[in-house]
Design a protein around this nucleic acid. Structure first.
Lengths: 296, 296
DNA sequence: GCTCGCTATGCTTTTCAGGCATGACGATGA
DNA sequence: TCATCGTCATGCCTGAAAAGCATAGCGAGC
């Protein structure tokens, strides 16, 4: 039995579903399923009642649940105890993040960093790419997550690219499709991010549309958490969004991939060449999250 | 951070030495060293002060120690809680062990089994090989650890072989050596196990000596935990022992391997062909402890 | 009966704990 | 002062197991 098992077990018990818990834990459902079986086998107790609609605690599981939660809380407390007793100087690392990242992901990232680089206190600053680039250059940020390829003596590594897509009203004719072309957006009322939010992507999107002679009725806004309200206020047919980070903003709206991939919102990690060791370690952990390079 | 790290950490803190703790945990010192480094790195706190004579807790480590012990105790309690709440029928598995196995090893084995086959309660019965064979055949034991190759429709798997050796008085002429031959024992007063204890090995040893025309002054006794007393009571020059399980009986006496390997005390795991599933699972875990076959 | 959402299983890939060999370093004793 | 010993650390390799991917099975609800 390892703490891993307890973390998984508690997540499932809380979510009452393996699939959802797996998502939350950032792993796949089969993996989770097997870990729990292993735990059950080791304990000699069936912890969950698996139904087709979800997963419920057995009496034994319920008893175990309280202990498990206590254990995890205590584990956190131990970390704290070690810290406060040891006169460790936790170094502060300032990390910039672009607006529009999902809060869950940020929370998860902070957890990961606390796990892997215990002696770093990571401070988050939200700013767009241009601001972050400036701040990193001026030494006001240690690390930045930006959507522009870094230049001018800044170190940078590509993390992942998110293809643009379009979210359309559920009753829209395009709603049945999974892909569409820029051309098909001609004449539609389109809500897209303002230039200030993700400058590079904004410019590329406008350019790609222009190049194809497509002229949607653009409306630009600084929507982030209020995409739905913006869309309804402006009576848009569709909203241009990027994949992972923004689809959740309109969970009810079908999402269509832009077939031509005119824009790929790439996220980079940037930092100054000369930096502290702890910053390098944090940078390494974040770099480890990069998706494998797409096959040519 | 995993429970593994805590177990390791606590062991080291208790032993005040990584090497000794590693031995106790049945793993190597480098492994342990790295795990602790990893834990320290993750916590961001140096837990131990490494000196050339051992390992001492830092203030941070001391604070962490109390929490860690509490955590491990709580982890055990969780298992119990799950058991008593779940109406699990813990099946009893009766396991026979030969006299002379080190108590530490038996404790370790029971811990391993509890970890890996949680729904089994393993009951230990100490008996010599002949008795165990009979008991397994009669169904009074589920599994047996014996020193004879099983016959007559019993399943069996070889676990490990222990070469015989001789422990000699510290002031004996042979004491500087690391090996000796049977021939060199000629005329010495030798204390060996009685035939009842490990029949097969006893017979083979006597036969091997006879075959080589060697006639030591044999004295046979049922010594186990009192080898020292027996040896002194009988004024022996040397005592015949097997490697791991029995060397500890005379920690101060130098131990010489028998060069000809006339006898190799092999331990087998035996069980009836038709048995319960839980017994099979326990058998599998124990079989997993078998040493890799020695190269030809 | 069909689809949908949930969990389980078979397989492959990848990660990492562990082992072995060896190095560095201080303590101890000749 | 130097050799020896016992301590912990490091490099390299292997093997176990965790995680991923694809897919099957299965009950609920339409």
């Amino acid at each position: 039995m390892e703490l891993r098992h307890l973390r998984y077990f508690v997540a499932i018990a809380a979510e009452r579903s393996m699939s959802r818990a797996a998502e939350q834990l950032h792993l796949t459902q089969p993996s989770l399923s097997r870990q729990i079986r292993q735990l059950e086998h080791e304990l000699g107790v069936v912890l969950f009642e698996r139904t087709t609609t979800g997963t419920a605690l057995t009496p034994g599981g319920a008893a175990f649940y309280h202990h498990a939660r206590l254990l995890l809380r205590l584990a956190d407390a131990s970390r704290e105890a070690a810290h406060s007793a040891g006169e460790t100087t936790r170094e502060v690392v300032d990390l910039g993040i672009p607006p529009g990242l999902s809060p869950e992901w940020v929370v998860w990232l902070l957890g990961l960093l606390r796990e892997q680089v215990g002696d770093a206190s990571v401070l988050i600053t939200e700013a767009n790419s241009a601001e972050q680039l400036r701040m990193v250059r001026e030494g006001r940020l240690d690390l930045g997550l930006v959507h522009e390829r870094p230049v001018r003596a800044l170190n940078g590594t590509r993390l992942f690219g998110q293809p643009f897509g379009v979210a359309v009203r559920p009753d829209h004719p395009l709603a049945e499709r999974t892909e569409c072309t820029l051309r098909e957006l001609h004449g539609l009322r389109i809500l897209a991010h303002g230039r200030e939010q993700v400058q590079a992507a904004h410019d590329a999107l406008i350019a790609a549309a222009h190049e194809r002679g497509v002229t949607p009725l653009w409306r630009f806004a600084q929507f982030s958490e209020h995409a739905r309200s913006c869309a309804e206020a402006t009576e848009s047919d569709a909203v241009v969004l990027t994949e992972n980070s923004a689809r959740r903003l309109l969970p009810q709206w079908p999402w269509l991939r832009l077939a031509e991939d005119p824009v790929d919102l790439t996220t980079w990690l940037i930092w100054q060449s000369a930096t502290r060791a702890v910053v390098t370690r944090v940078a390494e952990v974040i770099s480890g999250l990069a998706e494998p390079a797409t096959a040519p």
